[in-house]
Nucleic acid binder design. Sequence first.
RNA 1: GGAGAGGUGGCCGAGUCGGCUGAAGGCGCUCGCCUGCUAAGCGAGUGAGUGGGGAAAUCUGCUCCGAGGGUUCGAAUCCCUCCCUCUUCGCCA
Length: 427
Amino acid sequence: MLDMKYIRENPEIVKAGIAAKNEVENIDSLLDMDKKRRAVIVEVEELKKKRNENSNLVSQYKKEGKDAGGLIENTKLISLKIKELDAQLSKIELTINEELGKIPNMPHNSTPIGKDASDNKQIRSWGEIPSFDFKILDHLELGERLDILDFKRGGKVTGSGFPVYKGAGARLERALINFMLDWHIDKHGYTEIFPPFVANRASMFGTAQLPKLEDDMYYIERDELFLIPTAEVPLTNLHSNEILNVDDLPIKYTAYSACFRREAGSYGKETRGFLRVHQFNKVEMVNFVKPEDSYDVHERMLKEATELLELLKIPYRVLLLCSGDISFAAAKCYDIETWSPAEDRWLEASSVSNFEDFQARRASIRFKGEKGTKPQFVHTLNGSGLATSRLMVSLLENYQTDEGTVIVPEVLRPYMGGMDVIKRKYK
RNA sequence: GGAGAGGUGGCCGAGUCGGCUGAAGGCGCUCGCCUGCUAAGCGAGUGAGUGGGGAAAUCUGCUCCGAGGGUUCGAAUCCCUCCCUCUUCGCCA
């Protein structure tokens, strides 16, 4: 959420920012409402002051045994008027907050202005795109032949887009998750959280999945809860409505969670196998930092995520997203894409975003520094480190052999009971 | 799900028959004094949100005692609804 005061003082910048993000919002009408709001506040507060004075007078009159009847009658009328204005005010504020919630974060000045994914900038790449001297298989075929992935039966149990991992596949998935978590915890000082996988509406608003993405979220109507689309939601909202101590910053959380996305309207292309699923696994990193640190931390988190791919020896590239492709809440975002030999293209495996104070304002996450200074909003950042589904595609495909087996990346072997290759028959 | 207890400032905790209680007291914290050092002691200060005036320092108003509503001239205090925590019964991976 943007600061109303900022919008009031920089309407043109905000309008430009909204346009750069391919969003539409009527700033002028918002400014009108803001003006109206303040006018009503002035009026109602004047009346409240009067009411308070009168009430105190009534008390005084009664003590002195004087008749307060007229005063009470008069104050009754004032209270009536206050009630009316308060109702008007809360209606205005509700509308303002609703509109404010729909305004995207402003792109940072290092975010390139652009329309869509074609305007994203490649920052760097790592690893060789492998060439194979045999006919390669895609992850679906590999998964089926090795009997480690079962998309068909997942469809039977739940529906399409709910993959089943089996045998060495299940263990490999778990190995990936554990390897990544352990790395973040041991090497980068993250605190592990095992969060709830469902979240309430306030939390979903806090991290800005709502209102924009409501149709993409699974919703449990009976309990008014949402399945989390990412651990970012519980992790960030862990500190909602809190004032943190500056000495506690930065706070670094990492968590595994299953992630649920309806992906409404995206059936068709790019949905084969793991390319787009309704449930996938992800290790997430969330940082709460001082505003002046957030862009350095952003770079650090990018490294923390890409480092894993280097350890896994999977080729990747880093994109700096343009304003039109960046998420609603982000000011700046890097995507990390891994190479899929069978698809012959890059697949998004991670997003590392700086939200500045956008989420912090929505969820009211502040910190207090020096004595006498006002609490201010923290900056929040998150990054997948990493999502396993697309990563699994790259892993299986890059590590396949001409025998149809898959070599287990070295760093994962300790997590696989020492297994170094996945063959057809897994016990 | 049933029954009971409770939700007050960073924390603990008081709040009588509704009336200067934004809230006693304590802890913590900050600054100052004192003290070979540490500890103790003494003094002062210490919530947030949102308006208005002012170039600014700052002055001033309103709101907030889980959330929302109601009663009242006036509510942390009374009433209703909801949420959360604890105890207990039931159920259960």
